[in-house]
Design a protein around this nucleic acid. Structure first.
Lengths: 227, 227
DNA sequence: GCAAAAGTGTTATGAATACACCCATGC
DNA sequence: GCATGGGTGTATTCATAACACTTTTGC
């Protein structure tokens, strides 16, 4: 079994089961994901999706949440199980989650973290360990897909946001331009955001700020798609 | 750890990791699922979702496939990972798949099977072990959901089928009546089935038989649903 | 000829798209 | 006063839903 770190509980692969969390965030108008260097000293190091070994059988969700807070200082955020991978070659079963954290949560890593994690734009050509590139690709597809039928975009934004910021979030994740008027009409008709008394000043006319209505149903009632 | 069966490899819970497969099929115009008795001799036994222990770290998909063929005589069929559950109380991590097998595959159990599995309509009030009722419920929701945006209904039907049979399949799974003309128009426009030269005789006018076009894209291209 | 299931079109309503200009503020 | 981003409405196209009768066979 490759790369043993006996004193490093986070990366202990003695157990054949681990939890990994693909953490997404928006930063500098780009969709970014969090990675941990395999060997911190090596400048040409390969990178890994943040993970923790599963010791015994606690709640997997709790381990994922703990992993998230260890690497991001972020407790509350969107967290969902993605898929469970087995790699017979590496002898590890990986239960993979994906998480969305708001821009605010992006802080530089604390020193006491097991390893210094770093954000990279998702289109950065990064040398990833094992099947982590495949896992990242799947997480990305799932994120884009979820965005189209759930209200998941709000988890990447701060509490209050302008409609333009919300639209930009969608455009960044989907990788395509959206029509401003159609976007606004639909998002308002969906009845999942509400105006706040606040405004955001800046260049140009100030924007009215909205917030997500937590009492709203997150899943849009789907029309039948097939047949 | 409850119920040890030292001579029964299929139900060996020494390993903290297992694979379970929720197997669905259509039988007698009902959606049915496969269950294994916890104690074969006890007439008031609780039932379990078919499963196998994970020894070492082989491919999880292979284990699920093996589990499926062990209990149904069916190798090829629709098989998809559903979710990974951890129950700290029972100390087991369960990677759950769900499978769809065609009506033909429903055979009575072979004697050499580890335990006699049985089909039950999904609305049968059955005493299930642990969190298996919750798992079954989730599998059912996922099946209904998938049916609405993928071509998954065909995996429950024989190779050739009439449009009425296909519609009945949808109605049984979704639990609602569909309009015959609208159903046909949409399923034909989707371009995923093709007519065969065969007909099915029976009461009334014979039905033209169709088959699934394996070259068709199974996933319907989704329009944006949200916002 | 009648019972039983197969097959077949049209209309009305609602949703999605495409598209261009005025508004409020900071400098 | 001008540059910058915020905000607003309409017309067209396409998809969905509702709906009833004729056709082919076995008996």
């Amino acid at each position: 079994m490759e790369e043993q770190h006996p004193h490093d509980r986070q990366e202990n692969h003695d157990s054949p089961v681990e939890v990994r969390v693909v953490v997404f965030s928006l930063q500098e108008k780009k969709l970014q994901a969090l990675f941990v260097p395999e060997d911190h000293a090596d400048p040409g190091t390969r990178w890994t999706i943040p993970g923790m070994a599963v010791i015994g059988c606690p709640s997997l969700e709790c381990i994922a949440s703990e992993c998230l807070s260890t690497y991001t200082n972020q407790h509350e955020s969107y967290l969902e199980q993605l898929y469970t991978y087995s790699s017979p070659e590496r002898g590890i079963i990986s239960i993979v989650y994906f998480a969305l954290v708001p821009q605010i949560a992006i802080t530089t890593a604390r020193q006491e973290r097991p390893k210094q994690a770093r954000w990279f734009p998702i289109d950065t050509p990064l040398l990833l360990v094992g099947d982590h590139a495949e896992i990242l690709g799947y997480a990305l597809r799932r994120l884009r897909y979820k965005l189209e039928y759930t209200a998941v975009g709000f988890d990447l934004l701060p509490e209050n946001f302008s409609l333009s910021e919300l639209q930009a979030t969608y455009e960044i994740i989907l990788g395509e331009k959206l029509d401003k008027r159609n976007f606004r009409r639909r998002i308002l008709k969906a009845n999942i955001i509400e105006p706040t008394p606040h405004q955001r000043a800046g260049e140009g006319r100030p924007a009215r700020l909205f917030r997500y209505r937590h009492d709203a149903v997150a899943e849009v009632k789907t029309r039948r798609l097939f047949p």
